[in-house]
Amino acid sequence: MCYSAQIVAEWKKYKRNFGVEISVQDYFDLFWRRRAGEKIKIPKALEDGFADPQTQAERDVKALIDEWREAEQTRLQQELFKQRQRLAAAERILATKITKKAQHDQRIASSKTEQILGWLADLERTESKPRDARIYPNVFTHVVVSENGKRVLRPMRYGCRPAGKPAFYDTKYPGTYNARRDNLEGFWKGQFGRHHAIEVVTAFYENVDRDGSNVVLEFKPSMTDPMLVACLWSHWSAPGEQDLLSFSAITDEPPAEVSAAGHDRCIIPIKPENIDAWLNPDPANLAACFAILDDRERPYYEHRLAA
């Protein structure tokens, strides 16, 4: 399972390198929903892509980002004050008497205080860091799709909720951020051959077992260009519910070096010459879709412990 990936976040690179159009309205809608209070997770790198707006539409998106950051800063400062009060109260008790509750409060308040300070620092930080462009399940990121024969960049949630399925599929099937190749004509039959996408990444991360302990490994391909990961996507809607654009990365049996590192799945990077054929599938010719997955890039994946 590809549980995390390092994405190419600068959307202007997509315009330059892949000839895509950016659906700015989709980004405006996403940031608007977050500003209105929805629990939407967006990498900092996607926000930073609008740091230097050139059009009114881009300026409107940046305004929403700035408003959210200001509100988030206020919320975090209030929570920081509360946790510092909790910590001070626990330390006053511990100065005269050791109790389990005071020890618990001291530990939790200290941990949350440190976490909140880190979040506040990130809100104020202007220089970029690699972790700004790392995504996890249920986080929104850039995805390339085809609309009316044109490549379009849209924000989608990593974790596909198939159209027509109930919203509780998110919890019933928490692994839907990946689509197994051997189940494309089963669970994913509504998307495979119909709704294809590409996610552009430079590395992926996996949980593996090391002597009974879980560790996270970073897998980086030998190829110099980013990987064009084959994905499926869905436009989910239901009465009285907010529409959801979401996607899943297709995974297959791993190459030998990934298997030897301790993981049993791997994403599928397709070749650049197959982009349009992949994005515009023929549902009556699934064999052609499978052929594109077979005719994949086959880099060697170096691995190391993730930072």
Rank of each mutant, 00 (worst) to 15 (best):
V208F: 00
F247D: 03
R35F: 12
A284G: 14
M227P: 00
A51L: 04
P155T: 13
N280G: 06
A5T: 13
D295S: 15
Q85N: 13
V152E: 05
P137H: 09
A109C: 13
E185Y: 02
H104Y: 13
Q83N: 06
T96N: 07
L245N: 11
T141L: 05
P155S: 08
A163G: 10
S146A: 15
A288P: 03
D294Y: 03
D105M: 07
W119P: 00
I65F: 06
E257S: 14
G164S: 09
Q106E: 15
R154V: 15
E47K: 02
L30I: 08
D122E: 13
A261H: 00
A291L: 08
G159F: 04
K112N: 13
Y300T: 15
I198W: 09
A5V: 13
I42H: 12
E70L: 08
R157Q: 12
K150S: 10
F28K: 11
R16I: 10
G49L: 07
D294H: 06
V144C: 08
S234Y: 04
L153Y: 02
S111Q: 15
V152C: 04
P166Y: 02
K97D: 14
Q25K: 12
P239T: 15
W278C: 10
D48V: 10
D225F: 01
Q78A: 14
K150A: 15
S111C: 06
A291I: 12
Q78L: 14
C266G: 04
F168H: 12
R33I: 03
F204K: 02
P53K: 05
E91I: 04
A230S: 13
N285A: 14
T74E: 15
E114G: 04
F219C: 02
